[in-house]
Amino acid sequence: MDSLVVLVLCLSCLLLLSLWRQSSGRGKLPPGPTPLPVIGNILQIGIKDISKSLTNLSKVYGPVFTLYFGLKPIVVLHGYEAVKEALIDLGEEFSGRGIFPLAERANRGFGIVFSNGKKWKEIRRFSLMTLRNFGMGKRSIEDRVQEEARCLVEELRKTKASPCDPTFILGCAPCNVICSIIFHKRFDYKDQQFLNLMEKLNENIKILSSPWIQICNNFSPIIDYFPGTHNKLLKNVAFMKSYILEKVKEHQESMDMNNPQDFIDCFLMKMEKEKHNQPSEFTIESLENTAVDLFGAGTETTSTTLRYALLLLLKHPEVTAKVQEEIERVIGRNRSPCMQDRSHMPYTDAVVHEVQRYIDLLPTSLPHAVTCDIKFRNYLIPKGTTILISLTSVLHDNKEFPNPEMFDPHHFLDEGGNFKKSKYFMPFSAGKRICVGEALAGMELFLFLTSILQNFNLKSLVDPKNLDTTPVVNGFASVPPFYQLCFIPV
């Protein structure tokens, strides 16, 4: 009986604490739906499609509103004006990374994606500088992407125009580009180590996009005490870190300090320079996690976009025909596509942009946080508050993009057929937390897609009208449904 009384008292205290925290903070924060004790607004949000729920709530509470995930307040920004004001106009104040408990377990605050403060700034600055020195957006990395595009075309030829699921092959190409940047090595598509790495990356994007992960991140005790797919994700990350550590040891034994070959060499050189400046942010643990982040951000996002792009091109054969006509006119058949071609191919450029806009790969991006107490639109948001960005509300804005739910390359073309930029184009987020590999991803999408369409016609196994382009999961990332196609050599 005594234990029951204690339990009831504990629960009562928890409920009172929950109510007090919510009521004391709500006077400062933007308005929002009334949260339930302990669980907050979790029942009012469709976990399978958070973005749709945010759109519905914005119609009631406006472009800036507050939700509670458990006891934790989260300020939501919906629509271009609110997102721009926060991420661009007040970029420094909104540059923090929001709480992501599962990532905390995986990387302990290291790396480039989930770190904060001085650690994040130094690692991000170093990573950007190193990638630029190796030619991100310049010639040397373009050579690597072109080489991988040629290998991709050869792998597709091996399908002999038979029906195939493109998931694996389209994942190999961007993964190999990242391998060449980090390890100075590309792998054969049949290499077992490479296959294991690909498998872990593919599993992780599916797990991260599941409703279960949303629950884990908002009720963090689940991570330590409950079984579930989150444990598989943590094991996959541990596998990748151990693999990278092996490569780091190989580099330490063979590195030429006067001739760095890749990202690992550059990081080890930085560690050597910083060894007298303790404590340094440049450690082996930081290198492991930064490399894992580059793999995660640079492989599955690009391969998922490529997979979605081919599905949309199957669905819209008239678009595919126009792209192939432009390829034939500008590039021809006797040389590989290059980035200089893009400025002469406005329709193809528009298609690449429209694919990214339409699929809305990361509907709410990753959570941000404010780095200080900030007054925002007459609300006071306390330091450390998590900020949720609705990228969907920007990419699918119906004023900027008429009929935003329709796939239409003319969203990025003017009346004369010239490519038209849009400030609403934010597939990689915006501001200080914009994806480090934005330029690389854009290069890969253009070169891989043009190389495929230069060499193959795409054949659907069903009537294009019957192809479903609805994402199968739409949590962290929008993942396309399973499909097969035939690559018919031109």
Rank of each mutant, 00 (worst) to 15 (best):
L395D: 15
R97I: 07
F428H: 05
C151P: 01
T450D: 00
N398E: 13
E328Q: 13
D224F: 07
L36T: 09
G298C: 11
Q44A: 09
E300K: 08
T305P: 02
L152R: 00
F114I: 07
G79R: 00
E104V: 10
L461I: 15
E246A: 10
I327Q: 01
M257A: 12
G171M: 11
K185G: 06
N236A: 02
D256P: 12
D408M: 05
K118P: 10
K275G: 12
E122G: 11
N403C: 13
Q261S: 11
I264N: 01
H230I: 10
V462M: 10
G109N: 08
P346Y: 02
C266I: 06
M426N: 07
E199K: 12
D373Q: 07
K420R: 15
F94Y: 05
G431D: 04
L314E: 01
Y358V: 07
S343Q: 14
L67I: 11
L67E: 01
G98T: 11
C172F: 03
V330W: 09
K119P: 07
E92Y: 08
K52D: 06
I434T: 12
E122H: 12
I434E: 11
Q261F: 04
F401P: 04
F267I: 05
F126L: 08
N455I: 04
S343F: 10
F114T: 12
S127P: 06
V8M: 15
G70L: 04
F401Y: 15
L449Y: 02
N107P: 11
I359V: 06
K241P: 00
T55S: 12
F94T: 07
C266V: 13
V352H: 00
F226K: 03
S180T: 07
M129N: 12
T385H: 03
D143T: 14
R357S: 01
A86G: 10
I182M: 15
N204I: 10
N378Q: 13
K421H: 14
C10M: 14
L195G: 09
L366P: 03
K158S: 12
L361E: 09
F376A: 03
T301N: 11
R329N: 15
L485V: 14
M269R: 15
K383G: 06
S23M: 11
E438F: 06
A350S: 06
C435L: 14
G431R: 09
H368C: 08
F263E: 03
A441K: 03
V153K: 03
D165T: 05
A291L: 11
V177F: 00
I488P: 03
M345C: 06
I222L: 14
G417N: 10
A477S: 13
P33C: 00
I123T: 10
C164G: 02
I264S: 05
Q192E: 12
N289L: 07
I244V: 13
M129R: 15
P317Q: 08
P35W: 02
P35L: 02
S254V: 14
G117A: 10
I181Q: 03
K121I: 12
Q454E: 00
E272I: 15
L19I: 12
L29E: 02
Q278L: 07
A161F: 05
T167G: 09
G111H: 07
V8C: 08
M345D: 00
T348G: 01
S478K: 12
D89R: 02
V6F: 15
L7C: 06
Q146E: 12
G417D: 10
R433A: 05
G62C: 00
K423S: 13
S390R: 11
S210Y: 02
L306H: 00
C151V: 06
N133R: 15
L102W: 15
G228L: 07
P211R: 10
V323P: 01
T364R: 12
H368N: 03
K383V: 05
G384Q: 05
G442D: 15
G70W: 05
A82M: 08
F401S: 04
F183M: 15
V330K: 11
C151F: 09
P35C: 13
K432G: 11
F419P: 06
G70A: 08
E155C: 05
L366N: 02
I181K: 00
S23L: 08
S115T: 10
E199P: 02
S140T: 10
L77M: 08
S58K: 11
Y424S: 08
T364C: 15
E300G: 12
N398Y: 12
Y80G: 04
A321C: 08
N202W: 09
I213E: 07
K138D: 08
S390K: 05
E415W: 06
E444V: 03
Q324C: 09
P427E: 13
P464S: 06
R21F: 14
K273V: 10
E326F: 00
L9T: 10
N176H: 03
G171C: 12
V6C: 08
R157Q: 12
L362D: 02
L314S: 04
R307S: 05
M257I: 10
T305G: 03
P37S: 05
N418C: 12
N455S: 13
I207V: 09
V472T: 07
K72M: 06
C435A: 04
K190N: 15
Q193P: 10
I99Q: 15
T386F: 13
L67D: 01
L388W: 15
Q252W: 09
L71I: 09
K322N: 12
M406R: 10
W212Q: 03
T130P: 05
V145C: 05
G135H: 14
D2P: 13
P33L: 01
H276F: 13
V319S: 04
L131Q: 02
M198E: 02
V462H: 11
L234N: 10
C10I: 14
Q340I: 08
M406A: 12
R342W: 04
A103H: 14
P37Y: 02
Q484T: 06
V237L: 12
P63Q: 07
Q261R: 13
L77W: 01
E92S: 09
E274P: 04
F401M: 05
M255L: 12
N403G: 07
Q193T: 15
M339L: 13
V472G: 06
I222M: 14
S3N: 07
E444G: 03
D2M: 12
D414Q: 05
D349E: 12
